[in-house]
Structure formats: structure tokens, C-alpha cells
């Protein structure tokens, strides 16, 4: 039996990036909302709801990057120089927010600084990721196996829009996560934020979706000619279904449903991007198969991935299980 190793790996990388987007998405979102959460106690609860898991969540980003280096080195070597400024900004943002988890407990006087570091870093990281996504959708010029565009190509109205969309979208994930993990006054507060960010997210999804097909003819063709146009019906319909579940979850004051509905929105948007991209790894220049490393590299890592990824998912699930339920304000090792 013959396996299309490159395609399997494209699916695995796509899975890693999706896992990153939804997992770090909600903890970045908590960071985005942080300035709007009032009071020391509530802020600490919000922070503690993600403290045990953020590090694991962010590791999916390393897998996305490291995996790209391993199995699609040409994509890694062209996308990252093309997106140089947003990538560096993202890394610096992740530094500011990542250290805040520990630093804010280590000082009384300087705590507000690390709270700002947490919020500002989260916004910068989210915005940069959105810009990077938008720039990638718009396309990256490649010649002779290297990036051949300019240093500001990533900066366009479209990429700024996707940047803003991701900040708001992550905030929705963060708000619904907090609805699930908290109660009382804080829960009422974040439910209101979930309303605001939910409406804004849907509006932004609509705008980006209508804009995207007109960026490149191939996107337009994909979404408006048969048979792939079938997706044009299904994906928006499912997005509306998720929006309805989100609406009902918030009005019925349910704990978990809003978060799951928000996750659904992200998965669907992600699938939509995947439909536009296929079969390119770096649109419009490099396909999945052109970018792939030799089979020997793909096989070597696939053997490990086949064993280790299920193991990782199992113990990650276990960790979430250990920290299930509402956050106890009196808990925390600090």
C-alpha cells in the first residue's frame, strides 16, 4: 500500500496549528480581556484558570513551526522570512505574556506592570498571528527557493483586518472559557464580554469571508464553481448553527455550551482557510508536494508522531481533567 506521506504530514501540521489556535487561542484571549477584568481577586482567578495549561498550549506552536521545518523545510524557509516583522513581534509578545504568569506573583509594587505585560503581549501576539495569516492567504512570492518579495508585503488592509479579527476571536474564546471556569460576579462580567466579542467575531468572519475570494482568482473559483462550491453552502450554514448555539448558550446561561460553540466557529473558519489553500503549502508558489522533505525524513518522524501524538493527547486530556471544574479562588501554589 502506498501512502501519500506529504499529504499525511500536511494534515498533521494542519492539526497541530489548529490545536494551537484553539488552545492558545483561549488563553491569549484571557490576556486580551485582562484589562477589562476588574479587581485583584477576579484577575487572579482568570490567570489561575489558564496557568496550569498555557505552557502545554503554546507547545503546539513550537510543533507547528518545528514540524514545518522538519517535513516542509521549503515552506518554513520561505514563509518565515516573508513574515519577518509579524513573526518577531509575535515572539516578543509571547515573551511578555509568558513570563507574566510567574512574575506577577513575585512583586506587589510591580504587579500592574506584569498585568499590562500579560495583556499587551497577548494582544500583540494575537494581532501578529492574524496579520501573518492574512499575509499568507494573500500569497507569498518565491523565486529560486527563497522569498522574493519586499519586507513590507505583509502589511495590507486585508492583513490588518485578519489581525483584528483574530484578536477579537481569541477574546471570544477567552470570554467563553472564563464563563465555563468561573462563577459569580466574574462569570456575569465575562458573559457580557462574550456577547460583545461574539457579535464582533461573527461580523469579522463575514467580512473576511466575503473579501477572501476576491484576493485571488483561484479562491473565487474554489468557492463559486462546482463541485467545491458545495462547501460554500455547508461551511456558512454550520457557522450559523454555531452562532445560534452560542446565542442560546449565553441566553440560557449555560457554562460549557458557549465555549464549545466558539471552538466550533474557529474549527469551521480554519477548515474554510484549508479549502482555499489546498493544494498549496505556500500560496500561490509552493504545493504540499514541492515543499515536502524526502520520504525518508517524513517516515522517520511519522513513526514517532504515530506513537507520541496520541500519547500527548492522552496526557494533555488528563491534565485538563485534573484541573476540571470551576477555579477555586483560594487555590494556587503561589
Amino acid at each position: 500500500m502506498e501512502f501519500d506521506l506529504a499529504l499525511i504530514w500536511a494534515a498533521l501540521i494542519a492539526f497541530a496549528v489548529l490545536a494551537y489556535v484553539i488552545l492558545d487561542g483561549f488563553d491569549l484571549g484571557v490576556g486580551v480581556l485582562f484589562p477589562f477584568i476588574k479587581g485583584e481577586q477576579d484577575r487572579s482567578v482568570a490567570m489561575n484558570s489558564i496557568a496550569p495549561v498555557w505552557d502545554g498550549n503554546e507547545t503546539w506552536l513550537v510543533l507547528g513551526g518545528g514540524g514545518l521545518f522538519a517535513v516542509f523545510p521549503l515552506a518554513y524557509a520561505t514563509i518565515l522570512p516573508a513574515l519577518y516583522a509579524p513573526i518577531i513581534a509575535m515572539l516578543l509578545g509571547l515573551i511578555f505574556r509568558g513570563v507574566a504568569f510567574e512574575f506577577r506573583w513575585r512583586t506587589q509594587r510591580g504587579r500592574f506592570l506584569w498585568d499590562w505585560s500579560f495583556a499587551g503581549g497577548s494582544v500583540i501576539a494575537a494581532f501578529s498571528q492574524g496579520i501573518a495569516l492574512g499575509a499568507l492567504v494573500q500569497g507569498i512570492e518565491v523565486a529560486n527557493r527563497t522569498y522574493s518579495g519586499g519586507w513590507w508585503d505583509w502589511l495590507t488592509p486585508f492583513s490588518l483586518l485578519t489581525g483584528a479579527a483574530l484578536v477579537i476571536g481569541y477574546a471570544l474564546l477567552g470570554a467563553t472559557w472564563l464563563v465555563m471556569k468561573t462563577d459569580g460576579r466574574l462569570q456575569r462580567q465575562v458573559r457580557r464580554y462574550a456577547w460583545i466579542t461574539g457579535v464582533a467575531t461573527l461580523a469579522l468572519i463575514g467580512t473576511v469571508s466575503l473579501w477572501t475570494p476576491f484576493l485571488r482568482p483561484v479562491y473565487l473559483e474554489r468557492w463559486f464553481t462546482w463541485p467545491t462550491a458545495a462547501f460554500s453552502m455547508i461551511v456558512p450554514a454550520l457557522i450559523l448553527a454555531c452562532a445560534w448555539l452560542l446565542y442560546r448558550g449565553l441566553t440560557d446561561r449555560r457554562d460549557t455550551q458557549p465555549f464549545l460553540a466558539a471552538l466550533g466557529l474557529f474549527v469551521l473558519c480554519y477548515a474554510g482557510i484549508g479549502i482555499s489553500f489546498y493544494p498549496y503549502m505556500v500560496p500561490p508558489s509552493i504545493t504540499i508536494w514541492q515543499a515536502a522533505a524526502p520520504d525518508k525524513s517524513l517516515t522517520f518522524l511519522l513513526i514517532g508522531a504515530a506513537v507520541l501524538i496520541p500519547t500527548i493527547l492522552a496526557y494533555t486530556a488528563y491534565v485538563y481533567w485534573v484541573f476540571r471544574g470551576k477555579v477555586d479562588p483560594a487555590e494556587g501554589y503561589h
Partner: peptide, 13 residues
């Protein structure tokens, strides 16, 4: 990438 990438991939995993 074809050589060092998988080693780093194993490091992550």
C-alpha cells in the same frame, strides 16, 4: 531541514 527538522520534531514531541 530534511535532517535536522525531524530531530527537532522529536524534541518537541
Amino acid at each position: 531541514g530534511p535532517i535536522l527538522g525531524p530531530l527537532m520534531g522529536y524534541e518537541v514531541l
